[in-house]
Design a protein around this nucleic acid. Structure first.
Lengths: 186, 186
DNA sequence: CGGTGTAGTCAACAGTTGTTGGCAAACGCC
DNA sequence: GGCGTTTGCCAACAACTGTTGACTACACCG
């Protein structure tokens, strides 16, 4: 990989884009505003990322960075996973940008599906009692974690937005644990 | 209440607005498109509802219509509530419109908070072991139900979108039940 | 029948948006 | 040092947006 002279500019654009997309959503985050934040001309954005969708695709690359959980005891995976998810969410606004965009744009929605199916799926596959239930269980986990993130970071529902992290882990952990390893509910 | 001659038009506008807001979100649902669906001129929308925000406010009025649960045995409230929520969601696209808009607009977000705090709160207050935990427990229930709706109806995450209603109730019911009546997790 | 208010249409404005092409400066290899 | 390539800025376009005001037609009431 050769380092181009414009790499700093490209990075500044991506940082500004992530912030704007996270704060305003896809449509209300304008290329002009992003360019202004990055202190460059809007046309540079087009040159480097083609169009607005390309910019978003580049800015919203994301990895949940799920740990292995090989060492952790299987009964504590729920709490560990919830805590990791919360930290991952708060340390990076890519997920917020992704969620805000995925609600109205098909591209970001597809990426969201890929992230939660592709990264949570293998974990569920290793923990689920029956192998063929892995996607279902991963989906249930996603529904609770995304729902909590929605209420806490997007809608700012007071009791959820003000919850201490430990409290959140204590409440959500058992739910996630049951979705992963609990008995089939039917 | 006198019935105006224009009531049919007003209703047509609201119906079209709900559909468009639900399908496209707040910004991408244009007044022109809504007016076209309702077969009237865009300026009528402005006359009757002031501006786009006013239109949304009128179109997104919503009542969860939570039943009393006075007769139901307290241990089954979780499943009954989840089933009611799913039916309410699928029979009316107001909630979908509200969710799609609330993610990027402050007004709709506030309405969302009001609905879940104001309508779910009293139920939680009646069922929660400790009275002061009612808002927290209502918030937790909202996080799981909204998260499921997000994955199922908005992101269309395959395992959630394809779930039978009974399966969904069986999986989510115990979670909601625990959030409402389970022991304090801390 | 005449007049008043309501319902609806039409055309246009003003602002914003993504996007484009041309042109100037800086860089880096020969 | 010259020259092609890269980096950047500027101005503009074309489309679309919410919104407005003027004008017509109809309905209803006296």
């Amino acid at each position: 990989m050769t380092t181009r002279r414009s790499d700093a500019t490209r990075a500044a654009i991506l940082t500004a884009a992530r912030e704007r997309f996270a704060a305003d959503g896809f449509e209300r985050a304008t290329i002009r505003a992003i360019a202004a934040d990055a202190r460059i001309d809007p046309s540079m954005v087009m040159r480097y990322y083609g169009n607005k969708e390309g910019l978003f695709a580049a800015a919203a690359e994301f990895d949940l960075r799920l740990p292995d959980f090989a060492g952790a005891e299987p009964t504590a995976v729920g709490e560990v996973l919830v805590r990791h998810f919360l930290e991952r969410w708060e340390g990076d606004d890519t997920l917020l940008a992704l969620l805000r965009a995925a609600v109205t744009q098909e591209g970001p929605a597809e990426r969201m599906r890929a992230i939660f199916a592709g990264q949570l799926g293998p974990l569920a596959a290793r923990l689920a009692p029956e192998a063929d239930q892995a996607p279902l269980r991963a989906g249930l986990v996603a529904s609770q974690m995304l729902g909590f993130a929605l209420c806490r970071y997007v809608l700012r529902l007071p009791p959820m937005a003000g919850l201490e992290r430990d409290e959140a882990v204590a409440w959500l952990g058992p739910t996630v644990q049951r979705y992963l390893t609990g008995p089939d509910s039917l």
